[in-house]
Nucleic acid binder design. Sequence first.
DNA 1: TTGACATTCAAACGATTGATTGAAATGATC
DNA 2: GATCATTTCAATCAATCGTTTGAATGTCAA
Lengths: 224, 224
Amino acid sequence: MSAGEGSQTEQRLLDAAVGLFASQGFTATSVRQVCDRAEANIAAVNYHFGSKMGLYNAAIDHARTRAVDQNRFVQLDSNRDFWSDEPPQTRLRMFVSMLLDHSLDASGRPSDLARIFIHEMLDPTEAFDRQVDVSISRVFDALCDICRLVAADAGQGNMPVASIARIAFLISAQCMYPALTAGVVRVLHPAIEFDVSGREAIADAISSSAVAALTRGSDEAPDC
Amino acid sequence: MSAGEGSQTEQRLLDAAVGLFASQGFTATSVRQVCDRAEANIAAVNYHFGSKMGLYNAAIDHARTRAVDQNRFVQLDSNRDFWSDEPPQTRLRMFVSMLLDHSLDASGRPSDLARIFIHEMLDPTEAFDRQVDVSISRVFDALCDICRLVAADAGQGNMPVASIARIAFLISAQCMYPALTAGVVRVLHPAIEFDVSGREAIADAISSSAVAALTRGSDEAPDC
DNA sequence: TTGACATTCAAACGATTGATTGAAATGATC
DNA sequence: GATCATTTCAATCAATCGTTTGAATGTCAA
């Protein structure tokens, strides 16, 4: 066997599994499908990963590792330190960009990891609780923190927690929705682009409208 | 047999199928699951609907019919006439409310029809093309039309098509995202509510920020 | 070359899949 | 009550599911 990490078939199985689980979900994906795409024997799954669920968990970790390597994933700890000097609005803008990079891969297509998450939210498996902890929950809390800072920075420090949470929720909605619809939008309305430049325009629109909502009073219109 | 529409077991099968297809998707749902929940014999599916795919299509139509009966579904033709006298901003606000009502049912839970759509976007079946035509495409075009009217009404008639489309896309993102995440949000962050009153606050936030984006220039900040 | 270990392979396991069968049950009409 | 079409039912079909087995193959040290 190889000295490094995992055999070649193990890597091929993981790559194939990530793609199939992303589009079809856990139950609708068969181990034979994965093995066919990976050009591996059927018994390889249970040999390397113990079971189909073992492969599923390993595939999720594999997708997350790939995303981190490509700097596409929200790394809370390092970023929190890295950003702490920036003004709140800048941090919000960068956080939005990171969320967008999490839902779309480098070529503007829906990312595998985000699509697996969507399947889990529709029909959770036993792997979901771990995902919520390490990703969804902490990311959303961090987004709420930044939104609170933006509001406080604009003299809206007494904005209700529910309003902050609602705005943060709508921000994440705009950032994660492309992971679900980019494929359809690409065909249906090509004017909307998800490449790097198009993504910047989207990030600008999201963060600027969020700043406007956090800056003005709870329900007041911005009377100038 | 009965005079009206469909037998009793046919209705029970449809109700059970809608719920199961909504959470698990087409492939991951078995006809035995549906029949167990509907308390019907296994052969009932093929007798009443010809095949599993026939049941799937009938279930989608059933869900749409139920949604229309509850006034939760976007009825473009009738609404277009009904609204034609309202000012653009009012029409946008009402359209946002309709989209929200489409993604959430009366009790604030993700709607079955929207969840089926999400499955179709992740992993399309042969039923998807029809769905795109009758729902997604026409709804999005109508939303773009309203956005264009709002922009023109504010003297931004020359706003690029891509900008209009991007804003409309972000509006639909904020309206449809609850269909995917309401279940998780309910547990993770109860401060965000999806009942009728909470939905009004969300609709206000979405439409007001959209109006702001459509009213101000392409990338200009609203210098007062 | 030998032995020990890691990996791959064809074959098969019982269970479940969507679909089909023919008989039994049901209900309406005469 | 007899006749007919409609609906339900248990049983079963071939195919596929996740998993397991034991033999064959590859790899490296002794």
